[in-house]
Design a protein around this nucleic acid. Structure first.
Lengths: 227, 227
DNA sequence: TTCGAGATTTAGGCCAACCTAAATCTGATC
DNA sequence: GATCAGATTTAGGTTGGCCTAAATCTCGAA
């Protein structure tokens, strides 16, 4: 069934696989329209590509029901995720990029780097486990840590926690967060929640700061090491 | 005539322009077949692309006579040359690459990096004037030093010179040259020339070494600083 | 001055990846 | 269980960039 030939994947294919991976937590199928939305393509184009990728053995497609990655597809996707996150970490660590600007750059570079370059960057960084946003980096053999941190929106008032991951790629949002000290590693205490998905008041390293509920849902925290 | 619209160029177009620049020393026209040979494409494909690039105002084409870069085309080409050479220098300087392995990597990356990344790499390197092979790097405003070094094949016996540039991209050849100490910066003395384009005997930093005439034509030297 | 080899261009196709418009399917709601 | 909105797929078209084969041009040599 699946063509075992390992021809290099095109940039488009790499993008599709990465996006499908991102849309399938716990391996649930991803829908055509979600993929189309993420890639900013028409649903018809995505439908066509899905057909081709299924024939190549990279996807499992149940018409009208959605797609899942096959083991081959998942490997290819994780390879791209590793590349993306290593590149982000490298640009921040060695070339003075801010965490808000690296996504765009990595999005292009991830298709152009060799495996060797990624491994050299990884070594230069000390084989990091997470990128600048706290997202886990798959290892060279494509194992990825399953993390289960808590969204800040669910932390009770009075708890002292450490920010572990910021789930956003929007430069504006990231710049704002950095400006109030909300970057991975920051220690913070929840001071109060307003009801009805209202804003949350925090103490971040000694500064008081109020953020919206929606933003708090994209901040993931773990128990503070200093607690 | 020339469409002034500055749409981003495709990878293919970038490659064509860079190759045409490389084939036009002193602005002499490049032939369809030379371009085809360098890009490993059919002459018919090149002919078609030449037509499109002329219409875009990047090339001046005289049918059956060859092409030259327009000022726009030359700027785009030099931008790629700068990218390529900065990337090579960066990979050698910061990521432990050997000078024999960087060409291939740079060939892909040059299409994916942003201007910002190139400038950051350049700054990290101290705005170098030459890449690891001794090729001059165009400045950020795309000025390129016109160098006129002497091929080693034309240096008289007895002269003490410094190796400035190695005009080759072949990994095997570069590895061999490095193994005998023939890298930019090396000081060497020509001991003897065999007649009829025969081999040349050198003293490289104290070691004797014999190289063929053809290889000597791709080694460029200047007057030794220590002379 | 003519001829022909070799270079170049034209003609006609192919493929990946996108598009819009039209047809078809699905599932929640009445 | 019929209906319909919205999701999905199919149909048909475009573009960039490549190909081979055929036509055409050029220029040096006879």
């Amino acid at each position: 069934m699946a063509a075992a030939t390992h021809e290099p994947l095109t940039r488009s294919v790499e993008d599709y696989l990465k996006v499908i991976w991102g849309l399938s937590p716990e391996g649930r199928p991803a829908s055509t329209s979600d993929i189309a939305h993420r890639l900013e393509l028409s649903a018809a184009s995505v439908s066509g590509m899905i057909k081709r990728l299924s024939e190549q053995g990279l996807l499992e497609h149940v018409p009208y029901k959605g797609v899942q990655l096959t083991p081959d597809g998942r490997r290819a996707a994780l390879k791209m995720v590793r590349r993306h996150r290593i590149i982000e970490a490298y640009l921040v660590g060695f070339l003075g990029y801010g965490w808000d600007g690296v996504h765009q750059e990595a999005e292009r570079l991830e298709h152009a780097v060799s495996d060797e370059l990624i491994e050299r960057m990884s070594v230069a960084l000390g084989n990091p486990a997470a990128d600048p946003h706290g997202d886990p980096i798959p290892t060279a053999d494509l194992a990825i840590e399953e993390v289960s941190w808590t969204p800040l929106s669910e932390v009770a008032a009075g708890e002292l926690v450490e920010l572990r991951r910021v789930a956003s790629e929007e430069p504006d949002r990231l710049r704002y967060l950095a400006s109030v000290g909300l970057q991975p590693g920051a220690t913070l205490m929840v001071l109060s929640h307003q009801p009805f998905q209202g804003p949350i008041t925090l103490d971040v390293d000694g500064h008081e700061c109020v953020i919206g509920h929606e933003l708090a849902q994209s901040l993931f925290v773990g128990r503070s090491r200093s607690a």
